[in-house]
């Protein structure tokens, strides 16, 4: 018996990336701009989507694909907010993958929207490794999580187009250094857009919504 070495050189994420490229083509055919939202559980992903839908009512048609391990709670909230939404339950999976998104598109009215949010599973590590076909990647950090997260999860900050810093209404009550935090994030990602906001008071939301409108218009 002999052993021989067979060269492979094949990217491990290749299958997901191929599916993501197919998804992207479908989004482009429908002229829809897609934003993949990634954050820790409870950072405010659903709150940001709801508040954005509310503020852009009549200006931008928004839909959502909601990823969760279980339940349709977030989808129900978004529908109640007046936007079409579809749920993906990953059944334990810690992230969405391109195939799951492709399947969800069968029941999604792509012709009725200009912009789609994909709310990824609450997790700071796994989602960023799986392209879904999105045009734009957004992370959310919230003030109660603390200002040291970029040290622990550098990859997500280095791989998104924008970071929403949510719950700034809580800044007076917590030891969160907003200046230092933004500096640290910029050192990991010089081109990142930063949006400090509060979904409760509405502070900072105008900058965020106009940025989104520009993205959707460019589509």
């Amino acid at each position: 018996m002999s052993t021989r070495r067979v060269p492979v050189i094949e990217r491990i994420m290749g299958a997901n990336d191929t599916q993501a490229a197919d998804n992207r083509r479908i989004f482009d055919e429908h002229g829809v701009h897609v934003v993949n939202i990634m954050a820790a559980p409870g950072a405010g992903k659903t709150s940001l989507i709801l508040e954005t839908v509310r503020r852009l009512q009549g200006e931008l048609r928004i839909g959502a694909i909601e990823g969760d391990v279980a339940s349709t709670v977030d989808t129900d909230k978004v529908r109640a907010g007046g936007a079409p939404a579809v749920q993906i339950n990953t059944g334990g999976g810690c992230h969405l993958d391109a195939k799951q998104v492709a399947q969800s598109l069968n029941e999604f009215p792509l012709d009725e929207v200009d912009l789609v949010f994909i709310e990824n599973v609450g997790n700071l590590i796994c989602p960023v490794g799986f392209a879904l076909g999105e045009h734009t990647r957004v992370a959310i950090s919230s003030v109660p999580e603390g200002d040291d997260k970029p040290y622990k999860y550098p990859k997500i900050y280095a791989n998104v187009d924008a970071l929403v810093i949510n719950k700034i209404d809580l800044l007076p009550y917590l030891p969160f250094d907003l200046e230092a935090f933004q500096k640290l994030v910029r050192s990991l990602n010089p081109d990142i857009e930063l949006f400090p906001v509060s979904c409760v008071t509405g502070e900072g939301m105008d900058a965020w919504t106009s940025w989104l409108q520009n993205l959707a218009r460019a589509e």
């Binding site: 021989r4 067979v6 492979v8 050189i9 094949e10 491990i12 280095a158 050192s187 010089p190």
Partner: peptide, 19 residues
């Protein structure tokens, strides 16, 4: 603050040894 990673994102099967 303008660093770009030029190495470190690799993620692939390089080769296999078969019998």
């Amino acid at each position: 603050s303008r660093a770009k990673a030029i190495r470190g994102r690799e993620f692939y099967v390089d080769s296999i040894e078969v019998e």
